[in-house]
């Protein structure tokens, strides 16, 4: 984890694991530990009978403004939660937002890729 953080912020590009869509620029998000429940990303056929299964994830990138994202999708609201997804391939959830707190948008570290890009 240490190799991803510099001055409390992400030191690499945060990207989709599946299609290389860019989600966050380097040093735009702060690292935050908080237990958040995210449904699994697999297809439903693998989830047969385990409809609402997910996992609690602790390590996240946090931004205070939704327009800090380069590219991201917001799901419909479920019990005040909007799940975040890749803006290009729709896969997710990769993140979490409670509509009652408009200053917190989380991306789960485990569900994204981190990459150094020389522009």
């Amino acid at each position: 984890m240490d190799d991803l953080i510099e001055d409390g912020k992400n030191n690499k590009w945060v990207m989709c694991k599946f299609c290389e869509s860019k989600i966050l620029r380097p040093s735009t998000a702060s690292y935050e530990e908080r237990e958040l429940f995210l449904p699994f990303m697999q297809k439903k056929k693998d989830l047969a009978g385990t409809e609402h299964k997910g996992e609690t994830l602790k390590r996240h990138w946090l931004v205070a403004d939704m327009f800090a994202f380069e590219n991201v999708g917001f799901s419909m609201t479920v019990d005040s939660i909007k799940y975040l997804a890749c803006a290009d391939c729709e896969r997710g959830p990769i993140g979490w937002h409670d509509i009652n707190d408009k200053t917190k948008f989380y991306i789960a570290v485990e569900r994204v890729e981190h990459r150094q890009i020389t522009q």
Partner: peptide, 17 residues
């Protein structure tokens, strides 16, 4: 992919730069 959790609940909006 059409049967993931996300596509089941649906997308509200997206942000692109």
């Amino acid at each position: 992919f059409n049967t993931t959790f996300i596509s089941t609940i649906g997308i509200d909006f997206k942000i692109k730069t």
